[in-house]
């Protein structure tokens, strides 16, 4: 394992980072941001891959397989829906200047 004290440092600093990154978010972005952070914890995919790569018994392979399926669903689904939502936000943010020129 990563050395105990270092691990706590990482944990603490990452927690502050998450707080700061979100602290000033406008209400209009709450849903996309929840969706976006939902996508980010899809990183569990790499953990599930590690677990399945290291599986030694049939049981471990079955659980590992389920884990990777679920994690891939989290990552891909999270990306697709977040991207779809934010695509619309881009359009409405840039429509006005663009509309003025046409």
């Amino acid at each position: 394992m990563i050395d105990g004290v270092i691990a706590i440092y990482i944990f603490m600093l990452a927690a502050f980072t998450g707080y700061e990154v979100i602290a000033r978010v406008p209400v209009i972005l709450h849903t996309p941001l929840m969706s976006g952070s939902n996508f980010v914890h899809g990183i569990v995919l790499v953990g599930a891959m590690f677990a399945l790569f290291q599986a030694e018994s049939r049981l471990e392979q079955v659980i590992g397989f389920i884990g990777v399926v679920l994690a891939a669903g989290n990552a891909v689904g999270g990306y697709v829906v977040t991207e779809r939502m934010l695509e619309m936000f881009k359009a409405s943010g840039q429509r006005k200047p663009a509309g003025g020129q046409h």
Partner: peptide, 25 residues
């Protein structure tokens, strides 16, 4: 937590960031 178990820094950092950001949200 599983990131600590697997010794995986990407999971620790991303998971914790989402944990705290999600709590604030």
């Amino acid at each position: 937590f599983e990131g600590f178990v697997l010794n995986n820094a990407a999971m620790i950092i991303a998971g914790t960031v989402v944990g705290s950001a999600g709590t604030l949200l």
